Simulated assay, not measured.
Amino acid sequence: MKRSLLALALTAALPLSSAQAELSFNGFANIVAGKASSGDSQWGHDDDVNFKQDSLFALQASTDLGKGIGATVQIISRGENDWDTEFEWAYLSYDLTENTRILAGRQRAPLYMYSGFLDVSYAYPWITPPQGVYDLELSRFDGLSVNHNFTLGEFDSSVQAFFGSETNDVEVIDHMVESEFEDIYGVSLTLQRDWLTLRSAYVQTDFSLPDEGATELGNAWRAIQGFEFIGDEVTLVEDETKFAEFGIQIDYNNWLFIGEYTHVEYDSMPLKNEKSLYVTGGYRFDNLLVHLTYGQDENEVNNAINQLPFGIAPELDGLSAVTERVFRFREQDSSYYTLGARWDFHSSAALKVEYSRLENDLSNQDSNLIRTALVTVF
Rank of each mutant, 00 (worst) to 15 (best):
A12C: 10
A12I: 12
P15N: 04
P15M: 07
S18A: 11
A19T: 09
G27T: 04
I31P: 05
A33C: 10
K35T: 05
W43Q: 08
D48M: 10
K52G: 04
S55Q: 09
D64M: 14
D64W: 03
L65H: 15
L65V: 13
G68M: 09
I69Y: 15
A71S: 14
T72Y: 01
E80K: 12
W83H: 15
F87S: 03
A90D: 08
Y91E: 07
L92E: 10
Y94H: 02
D95S: 14
L96A: 12
R101P: 05
G105E: 07
R106A: 09
P110K: 08
P110V: 06
S115D: 02
G116S: 14
A123T: 04
P125Y: 13
P130F: 09
E137M: 06
V146P: 08
V146Y: 04
N149I: 08
S157M: 09
S158G: 12
V159R: 10
A161E: 06
E166S: 12
T167F: 00
E178I: 11
F181A: 01
Y185N: 11
L196H: 00
Y202Q: 05
F229R: 11
E233N: 05
E238M: 04
K242C: 08
A244R: 09
A244N: 00
F246E: 03
I248Q: 10
N254D: 13
H263F: 06
D267L: 11
L271K: 05
N273D: 12
E274K: 09
T280M: 04
R284P: 02
N287Q: 12
G295A: 14
N303Y: 03
N303V: 02
A313M: 04
E315W: 11
A321W: 11
Y337V: 13
Y337M: 10
A341Y: 03
A350T: 10
V353A: 08
S356I: 12
R357H: 10
S363Y: 10
I370S: 03
R371W: 03
A373F: 07
L374P: 02
L374I: 13
